[in-house]
Amino acid sequence: TVQGPKVSWKIGAWGKPRAVTEGIELLARHVKERTGGNFTITIGYGTLGGEKELLDILSRGALEMTMICSSYHPDKQPAYTVLDLPFLPLPDPATQWRVHDAIHKHPFIVKEFEKWNASLYVSSLLPQYEFVGRSSPPPRKLADWKGLRVRAIGGIGEAMRNLGAVPTSVPASEVYTLMERGTVDAVSFPSTYAHQSNKTHEIGKWYTANLSPGTQACPALINRDHWAKLPDQYKALFDEAKPKIFEALAAAYKKADDTNIPLFRRRLEFVTYSEADLAEFRKAGAQPVWDAWVKERAAQGIPAKELLDLILKTAASGGKS
């Protein structure tokens, strides 16, 4: 075990313990085990702050660590929202991990989080925001999305608008009732777990198996002052935990899929798009959103093109960079 003083940290999170939070849960277990209980990290699910306030609370040091989702407050960290762009080529957890890590190390991003007195620790690897829908027939081609009322947030909503769908604001808690009645035709949620816990699979008719409309970046952050005060031997534990966190997250999502996908298969038609279709989606739906993002953010002095290119290059490198 690692010797050291008694230290107790807090991580802000929200919702319930679930696949997304498996990373911070693992970190808490890891540091406790390795220090013989001297270094403990408590995770507060909504008890230490709401999802939109946690970055503020972290910045003044009330918390040592927190999870955030950048899409909940895009302009708190405008450059970082590059990871929230729709239809980025992040087909699997390993690619996503590599891409997020590269962005986390980019000097501009590091500086952006310094404004909040925070440094990026790890990604939470959210899966693609696939749709469950109720419209009939299912949107098997790009043109079929025209006129569908979809619940999709941020950049995904923008991309769907470019495809002719109508993004509609609906709080997650009311999704079930509104979809049941056809007030919304399709709903995008992160992970099969989120679909399952909002019961969309019970009233939906189809599921987009490989649309990959995009995902969100929900990293874990560390307050820089608290980090500076942490004994070096404890700091080393954070690096040690990183690969384990990746494995734990990937395993947690796989486990959720392993229970949910068969469940979905029994009730939903799986809509699978060909490579050509997906290329078309990207061209018609995503490219304008990317272009607009680059234009807007570049005007703010952000190396927007460079960040987007970094994502595309890292994703294409297949792990050999």
Binding site: D56, H73, D75, K76, K115, I153, S169
Partner: peptide, 19 residues
């Protein structure tokens, strides 16, 4: 809390209204 939104920036989730 206002100053942080003013200096560092903050916006709503969907249509990015300034906060």
């Amino acid at each position: 809390n206002f100053l942080r939104a003013w200096i560092n920036g903050d916006s709503s989730m969907d249509i990015r209204l300034p906060q």
